[in-house]
């Protein structure tokens, strides 16, 4: 009886996936939901994964796309609702409530303030340790775009955390 390499590898990836989810969402509940959705999607689509390619990059791409979809959906909802009801918190950078920001700490706050595209570039390269080429493939942009987002994100973080960094 054979074991299942896909499922084994996916299980081994879970700690890293949870970290990436937290880096992307900077929110505990969002990160948990995102992880769950990502694993569900990965299992459903596992026939599309090509053996011999990196499973981590494949799953990161799923996670990243799920999050982008979620952010877009929230933006749409907030655009629909804010005309009628003010103060809808959509959970994006710049919209966090004060209490949440205290929990995040300085680094988390600075990360949360980055635009989404810069944050994902920063997290993929500086935290998750992907090479530029891999990170660009995960996001689905040319490498030059990745490095320019990474550069801007870094600058902003260094500005904000400069004294501590």
């Amino acid at each position: 009886m054979s074991t299942n390499p896909f499922c084994e590898e996916l299980t081994a990836l879970l700690p890293r996936l949870r970290r990436f989810a937290r880096g992307l969402t900077h929110d505990v509940a969002d990160a948990d939901d995102l992880c769950q959705q990502t694993v569900e999607r990965a299992l459903r689509s596992r026939q599309q994964w090509q053996e011999g390619t990196r499973l981590d990059a494949w799953v990161y791409r799923i996670m990243r796309n799920q999050w982008i979809d979620e952010v877009r959906a929230r933006t749409r909802r907030s655009q629909t609702f804010t005309h009628e009801e003010e103060g809808v918190d959509v959970g994006m950078a710049g919209h966090r409530d004060a209490e949440n920001q205290v929990e995040l700490g300085n680094v988390g706050r600075a990360l949360a303030r980055l635009p989404d595209d810069q944050r994902e570039a920063v997290v993929l390269v500086l935290v998750e340790g992907f090479a530029y080429k891999e990170a660009a493939e995960i996001i689905g942009v040319p490498q030059g775009t990745l490095t320019s987002r990474l550069g801007r994100g870094r600058e902003a973080l260094l500005r904000e955390l400069g004294e501590q960094a």
Partner: peptide, 14 residues
């Protein structure tokens, strides 16, 4: 240092 700070911030989750 920035890399270390980011890593330290997110490492506990992993």
């Amino acid at each position: 240092r920035l890399r270390t700070m980011l890593g330290d911030h997110l490492a506990p989750i992993a």
